[in-house]
Design a binder for these strands. Structure first.
Lengths: 142, 142
DNA sequence: CTAGGTGCAAAAGGTTTGCGCTGAC
DNA sequence: GTCAGCGCAAACCTTTTGCACCTAG
């Protein structure tokens, strides 16, 4: 599903189609990274020099409310946004904050949660917490 | 493992034992909720009226670095801290922010990650994203 | 004694909000 | 024409930092 299609769907809910929103959503869908609001801002600014951070947040919150993106937080300062929830898992170092990818087939569990909770489940996120190889090496030196 | 025991272990790493730290850690271990820094602050303030928020954050970051607690973020304003990582899973409503518990046996996967990543894994966290029953009902009304 | 911790207050950084104007419908 | 969205800037809230004093080891 592409940006235009999603925004057309949202029109039924009183959400207006604007070029800024199209640009934001297109970027979220085409990138495989998990950009921060500020990164999205700078990217969209290349196309729309007048765009403001407020508009970015406004759009992100609107999309989040309608379930079209996930807001992730890795404990560092700013949130990251993911337009492709079904992705892969992460390992976060509690010491230095490094985030590594962990590739493995997604666990097939969403249906079980949906059946037992009454929630409409869009996806899940899994993170492992630990100490990265570098920090482990540094600890041994002390 | 209780607060005093953990703090004694940390002494070897040059971390000092202070009554404030004991109070913070005891609260984290005894509560089953996931308090914010501010909630911890107010709780500890009952015992140590002079304690400051800076000390709370200082201690939380120290504990996090040593792997004794997890910093969670649910997209709302402030981080939440969990002294008992091995717990249960959560379902977060993208629309209203409600966090519901989902009880099920923990997925046995940490060893697999440890073997394949080089990280020392302390635990994992899993969250499901979707729309809660109340918000689903509200959407249908429109 | 002396480093690390504390309390306080100021600063920093991310996110939200208010307001007048614009543009989608 | 109307109202949601825009840009701008100020406000807000959480977290970090700097500094003088204190205290655990």
């Amino acid at each position: 599903m592409d940006a235009i299609e999603i925004l057309k769907q949202l029109k039924d809910k009183g959400v207006r189609f604007t070029p800024q929103r199209q640009a934001i959503l297109e970027f979220l869908l085409e990138t495989v990274s998990h950009p921060t609001a500020d990164e999205i801002y700078h990217h969209v600014k290349a196309k729309f020099p007048g765009v403001s951070l407020g508009t970015i947040y406004n759009t992100l919150n609107m999309l989040k409310e309608h379930g079209h993106l996930l807001e992730l937080s890795y404990g560092d300062m700013s949130s990251r946004f993911d337009g492709n929830p079904k992705n892969h898992y992460h390992i976060v170092c509690s010491k230095c904050g490094t985030v590594a990818d962990f590739h493995r087939p997604l666990i097939d569990i969403d249906q079980e949660v949906m059946d037992n909770s009454g929630f409409l489940i869009m996806g899940h996120r899994m993170e492992f917490y630990g100490i990265c190889p570098e920090c482990r090496a540094n600890e041994k030196l002390n």
